[in-house]
């Protein structure tokens, strides 16, 4: 649970993500989706409850420690290092391998997301979609097993949305796990194995995409009809 000055932002939400799964979180604005992600990777402290990652409690861990444990994170508004080049952005992650190996890994992921040709460009000069892809590439240099993605398709050209979906699907084939927050209902229903619906800080439904799609209560909450 998380309160902000008395307002309950996340109210007794319990959720589990199994290895290799893609789970989506949907809900109207202010329903607590991003706060839930921030609680999971410890960007904010929770008031009550526990966060378990790969069988261990990370309730007291610091954000950088969750990253070192294998938890990756991307943001709705990208948190790129705007004054560093694309290549430098991918060299920042703390990984326990030598510099040349890390460089190889950075090049691999930049090629994977199709940004290698822009490696010497400052991150601030990239388009919104390219910035999203760079954030994914940068995160992948750490080779996380679990990725928390906040609105990966928001404000992105449809050709880049297709590329991001492709990247997520390819990464899932490698056995990675995803928890994705998105407003893009069409995309997320097609991508996820399981959906969680939030409203006013609470989890109001959970199930496979078809099940959720048919739920009248969810349609009412989400679409207001």
């Amino acid at each position: 649970m998380k309160k902000f000055e008395g307002v309950v932002a996340v109210d007794h939400v319990s959720l589990t993500v199994d290895e290799g799964e893609i789970v989506g979180i949907i809900g109207p604005n202010g329903s607590g989706k991003t706060t839930t992600l921030n609680l999971i990777n410890r960007l904010i402290d929770h008031d009550e409850g526990e966060i378990i990652f790969r069988g261990k409690s990370i309730s007291r861990a610091k954000t950088h420690e969750t990253a070192l444990l294998g938890m990756g994170r991307t943001f709705q508004i990208t948190r790129l290092f705007r004054n560093l080049t694309v290549m430098e952005n991918t060299m920042v992650p703390v990984v326990d391998i030598d510099r040349s190996e890390r460089q190889k890994r950075a090049i691999k992921w930049l090629k994977f997301v199709g940004l290698y040709h822009l490696r010497n460009e400052l991150a601030q000069n990239l388009s919104g979609g390219q910035q999203k892809l760079l954030e994914i590439a940068r995160t992948m240099v750490m080779e996380p097993v679990f990725l928390l993605m906040d609105e990966p398709f928001a404000g992105v050209h449809h050709s880049i949305v297709s590329r991001i979906i492709q990247v997520i699907e390819e990464l899932r084939k490698e056995g990675r796990t995803f928890l994705i927050v998105s407003h893009d209902i069409h995309t997320i229903f097609g991508l996820c194995d399981r959906m969680i619906v939030m409203n006013e800080g609470k989890k109001i439904a959970e199930g496979d995409p078809d099940e959720i799609r048919r739920d009248r209560e969810i349609i009412r909450v989400y679409l207001g009809v």
Binding site: K62, H64, R79, E88, V92, P93
Partner: peptide, 19 residues
């Protein structure tokens, strides 16, 4: 490099394992 990174965004650096 990591110092310059955290100057741009501390949250961005933290999620990449930077203390």
């Amino acid at each position: 490099l990591r110092m310059r990174a955290l100057k741009d965004t501390e949250e961005g650096a933290k999620v990449l394992g930077v203390d």
